[in-house]
Amino acid sequence: MKHAALTGISPAVIAELKNGRARTLELTSAHNIITLTEAAPGECIFVTSVNEEDLSPGDPGIMVDLLALNIGMRRIEVANSFFYEERERMSARIKVQFRGITLTRDVEGRKWGDPTKVEIVRSACYRAG
C-alpha cells in the first residue's frame, strides 16, 4: 500500500513527534503541499528528514496518523518608505500523531507536481498507546 511522504522534515520535529503527543506542523515547501493535496484526515503518512530528491528505498522515517489538514493561502503585507508590497504564501497546517518507526521499500512521484508516495516496510513491533 502506498502512503503519502513528507520529506525534508527537521530531525528535531521528528524527535518531538516520537514522544507520542499530537502536534500541529505548518509546512510551506511546495512538494509537501502537493503531496498533502491527495491526503485526508484518518490516513497514515510517512515522515522523513531525507530530502525529496534523495529519498530512496531503505531510508528511515516515521509513520504518523493525520488527524487534521488545512491547506490555505496567507497574505503578507510589507511596507516601508519607498514601496508597499503584498505577497501571498501557501501553507499546509497538519495535526499528526506518532504511530511507529519504519523504512521505505519503494518510492514514486519523482516528477515535479506529482505527490511523493512510498511503500513502507511493515513493522513487526508496534507502539502501545
Rank of each mutant, 00 (worst) to 15 (best):
M90N: 11
L103A: 10
I33L: 05
G129N: 09
H3T: 03
Y126T: 00
L6N: 10
A68W: 05
A124L: 00
G42Q: 02
K95R: 12
G61V: 00
F83R: 15
I14S: 04
S10L: 12
I34Q: 01
S49L: 03
L6V: 14
D114A: 15
R105K: 15
I45Q: 01
I120D: 10
T37C: 07
A5P: 14
I71Q: 02
E86N: 12
S49K: 00
A124P: 01
E119H: 08
R89C: 12
I62R: 01
V78T: 13
A39T: 04
N70Y: 13
L6C: 12
R93F: 11
D54F: 06
E86Y: 12
F82P: 08
E53R: 01
I33P: 04
H3L: 14
F82D: 11
L67C: 07
V107H: 06
A15T: 06
P115E: 00
K18I: 00
V50R: 04
S81Q: 13
I34E: 06
V96Q: 09
V121G: 04
H31M: 06
G58N: 07
R122K: 11
R87C: 09
G20L: 02
F82C: 14
A124V: 00
G20T: 04
N51F: 12
M1W: 09
R75F: 05
G42V: 04
F46H: 05
Q97L: 07
H31T: 09
T37I: 02
N70V: 13
E53G: 03
H31P: 07
G61T: 02
A15L: 05
V13Y: 09
L25P: 05
S10W: 07
S29F: 10
T28R: 13
K117F: 14
P57T: 05
V64S: 04
N32G: 06
L69V: 02
N70M: 14
L27A: 01
A15W: 04
I120N: 02
E108G: 14
K18Y: 09
Q97P: 06
G42A: 04
R110W: 14
G72E: 12
L27I: 03
A4H: 13
M73E: 05
R87Y: 15
S49N: 02
R93Y: 10
A5H: 08
Y126Q: 03
T102D: 04
V47E: 04
G129D: 07
V118P: 09
Q97E: 03
A40I: 13
R75N: 06
I94D: 08
D59S: 12
V50S: 09
D54K: 01
W112E: 09
T116L: 11
M63V: 04
I45A: 05
L67T: 08
N80Q: 04
R89N: 07
G20I: 03
I120H: 00
F82N: 12
R21P: 06
K117Q: 15
P115M: 00
R74A: 08
S91Y: 15
D114Q: 14
S91L: 14
T37Y: 09
V13W: 11
V107Y: 05
P60D: 02
M73C: 08
A68Y: 12
R23D: 12
R21F: 07
I45P: 02
T104R: 05
Y126K: 01
T102N: 05
L25S: 08
I101G: 07
R89E: 07
F82H: 15
C125F: 00
G113T: 10
H31L: 07
I71C: 07
G72L: 08
E43L: 10
A22N: 03
A4Q: 13
N80D: 00
